[in-house]
Design a protein around this nucleic acid. Structure first.
Lengths: 143, 143
DNA sequence: TATTGTTATACTCTATAACTATA
DNA sequence: TATAGTTATAGAGTATAACAATA
């Protein structure tokens, strides 16, 4: 038997700690975790239905409705009925949404650099980030 | 701005996936996640109060009571009132508990090797595990 | 009065089911 | 009838508060 904690224990604890550390930063920018995830995902490209967005970010379709209501009301996203099929809602991020997202993500990644990555040497850091991005990219969709 | 997903997003998703993959293995061994965590922690050394154990594993003291009831009933842990202070319960793992824990952890780590670590070269694998254990060891207690 | 363990209650998050409107 | 979105309801997991036993 290998003499190490389970990967799930180590990576799980690390992930929970990172997410917990993210919360105050999100709050400072007036975003919930789901709102942030939505802004990050919409930035890639507009999306045609709320159900597709929910699926893409691993949420239930009923769960993001209040999130979208709030983001739209604050002008961070644009939500318009599709003229071709008025059941669907065309979703896209606004310029204000992009600014909020950028500021928030910059603060989050700055904190991650200082709090976690600073413990690694530059070479370790490159190696760690590289492996992490490879493993992350190949993950099955939800979780 | 660095061009990568947030560490919290990558490590968080990886952690959730690993924990989800662990669940069926735990179920096959008749253990809940909390029961497994308790067995892992008790193996290090006996502990004198349930509150201390709960604190050590990052749980609320009220949350592990049912877990301990079940483990004791199945003979996987031993729970005795402390003769010196009958309010406290002396907790320790039994030989049967150790066997269950070993079998379960072996299955979990085998799956982790095959499912995740197999994607890395031997050198990457050593490097990844080393950095992970260093980062994990220095984590603030709960999460 | 303080502490350990327990039980009862409430709260948060999430998923399921039922409803409205468009097609 | 089928689909997108919404609302209402119920369930799991967790934390908070009240309680009983012991010190």
């Amino acid at each position: 038997m290998t003499d190490r904690p389970d990967l799930a224990a180590m990576i799980g604890a690390l992930g929970r700690t990172l997410v917990a550390a993210e919360r105050p930063v999100l709050r400072d920018h007036g975003l919930s975790m789901w709102a942030y995830v939505v802004l990050l995902h919409l930035d890639d490209r507009p999306i045609r239905t709320q159900a597709a967005l929910a699926d893409a970010v691993g949420a239930d379709k009923t769960r993001i409705i209040a999130v979208l209501d709030d983001l739209a009301e604050r002008g961070l996203i644009d939500r318009q009925p599709d003229p071709a099929d008025r059941r669907a809602r065309l979703l896209s991020i606004t310029e204000a949404g992009r600014r909020t997202r950028d500021a928030c993500q910059a603060a989050i990644q700055r904190q991650e650099e200082e709090w976690l990555l600073a413990r690694l040497t530059p070479a370790q850091r490159r190696s760690f980030l590289g492996m992490l991005q490879n493993l992350y990219r190949d993950l099955e969709p939800p979780a």
